[in-house]
Amino acid sequence: MKHFLLIGFLISCVLAFFFSPFASSFPDGLERVSKELGFFHKEIEPIIKSPIPDYSSPFIKDGRLATSFAGLMGTLFTFILAYSTGYIIKKFKKK
């Protein structure tokens, strides 16, 4: 189990760091449909300002590298969040 998890985790990091800059920049399904049907303009400014909008770290100038770092950070955050949530849910289980 340990090795499998480690491999899975490393694959995720590699995908996020090395592959994310080469992802297709075409509009995704919903965005495409919203443009075609003319409701794309309805999108409003996000209610909350996020620190890393659109997967590009603002403090890194190079576009591809910014995406790589955003991807890696997101993968780590998600891992930590999901792992700790799972742990906490099980820990507070009523005996």
């Binding site: 995720s12 995908l15 992802a23 997101g74 993968t75």
Partner: peptide, 29 residues
């Protein structure tokens, strides 16, 4: 299996970033 939850979430996040092109100038992930 709690560690598997963490790894699955990390994998889902990472792979959702990887848009692949489909027909007609559209992508999906």
């Amino acid at each position: 299996k709690i560690p598997l939850i963490g790894v699955s979430a990390a994998f889902v996040f990472a792979s959702q970033m990887l848009n692949f092109p489909v027909a007609g100038g559209t992508s999906g992930h």
